[in-house]
Design a protein around this nucleic acid. Structure first.
Lengths: 250, 250
DNA sequence: CGCTAACTTGAACGCCATCAATGCTTGTGG
DNA sequence: CCACAAGCATTGATGGCGTTCAAGTTAGCG
């Protein structure tokens, strides 16, 4: 078997461009690497395949490789005594395995079956040293991940669980569009408890929030993984405006 | 080195190194730029001086320059109908002015009097194209900002206000150490309502949280801007940091 | 087709948002 | 130097929302 040829040219990095303007709010993701660059990275990369639930590396481990997702979803989280905190859901085209002072800062595991490229850090650094254009691509990707983390913080700063969920769904839909996936329905590959850990609320609260949005006819659930948006205006309103603060009602 | 050199040599970028290991948890920040690089950046930079409260740019403005702080504190935030969300407090050595599709993603204003370098984006890009070593420095800095944003999200995922405040104080103390500032007391240059907006709680809740930590003899307040840590173990426990078992490197 | 894990729903308690009043501090002019 | 004002911060009461604990339901998988 020859996975390298099967999956084509090699690693691919997708990101929204920081300085090239597009249609406002469109946030189109481009593939940043040229065929040439992909081929160069392919030389230092190996393919790994993970079953759902498998751990890739753990927080505090010595960082030895960076990863690039080909297919599937990866959850990055940290474990605490009072439950897990999900920092990000990673999709095809995403990079992960960043370290601080030589150690990984979070734990990663496959949320679905995953295929990914694994690139030893030493080789990555060597390649970066010799390819100035790659540097720029990495910068662009890091800018995107930074904005992503800031959006996450923004969601977590909301007070009501239904608002956080609305913003999460809104975000997922935007990401899906920017990945040029079929629209019309939001697909949630991760399970409810991962969503809860991402939103910083309990599993029970996520359930209630889904119920709230459903009973208000803002969304409808085809099944646990597929959400249809019925009232985009109301969803958007929840996502950046305070929910009816007025408590003066009988 | 003349006294003027510090401000005269040009922009300075400070960051914790992602792959060079240090004493675990020490998180020492280094100045990334060589004198030569600073001089090159100085050619495209101009100095700006801001009074406390002055706005630097607003969310949605067309991005035309990046900034690098020389002295003072900058607050980066977004305005919503239900109050402000503070995304970050920026210190000397930090970079800001990142954009998405050519527009700023947040509003920035001076939290204290500020001196900063302003660098037109076009010139920055040209300089990056011609200086591969600068690229690497920017990558390192972006990694740090990313981790910073993830830590912020981690704080916001906490449920109790006192826990968020404890983690915030812990973080500020670490940052202060990594900046090699005098230890023994945490200095909070920002006002209470900025802290509230950073922690995603109300001003009143911040007050209560301070009172809780004070009455538990975990901290004491010299004045509104100076906090002394009385019980670091308890603070770390609240902050959900693993107990520091003589972690002085093996 | 039964088992298990994931999810939903229910009831009581506690924390924080909200509204509102008081206290503190800083700056300005008399 | 004090009086005063304006902004910032603390403190107090009440109610809503989310956590917690627990039971019931669905879906996935052998």
């Amino acid at each position: 078997m020859s996975p390298e040829t099967k999956h084509g040219a090699g690693p691919a990095i997708h990101a929204v461009h920081p300085w090239t303007p597009g249609k406002p709010g469109a946030r189109v993701r481009h593939q940043l690497l040229s065929d040439d660059e992909r081929a160069r990275l392919a030389k230092i990369a190996s393919i790994i395949r993970l079953k759902k639930g498998e751990e890739i590396y753990a927080e505090g481990d010595e960082a030895e490789a960076a990863f690039n997702i080909v297919s599937g979803i990866v959850t990055a989280y940290q474990q605490t005594t009072s439950g897990n905190h999900v920092a990000a859901f990673l999709y095809p085209g995403d990079l992960f395995g960043l370290s601080e002072e030589g150690r990984y800062v979070n734990t990663t595991k496959a949320a679905t079956a995953v295929v990914a490229y694994k690139m030893p850090l030493a080789a990555v650094r060597r390649t970066l040293d010799n390819n100035a254009d790659l540097d720029v691509d990495v910068i662009i990707k890091l800018c995107e991940e930074l904005r992503q983390a800031q959006r996450h913080a923004f969601i977590l700063a909301q007070r009501r669980a239904a608002t956080r969920l609305a913003m999460f769904l809104d975000l997922q839909e935007q990401l899906q569009m920017s990945r040029a996936e079929p629209p019309g329905e939001i697909y949630l590959p991760m399970d409810r408890s991962s969503i809860a850990d991402y939103l910083g609320v309990t599993l029970a609260a996520v359930g209630r929030a889904f119920r709230t949005l459903t009973s208000k006819k803002i969304i409808s659930l085809r099944d646990r993984q597929h959400v249809r948006v019925l009232d985009r205006t109301a969803l958007g309103r929840l996502a950046d405006r305070p929910p009816e603060v007025g408590a003066k009602r009988a």
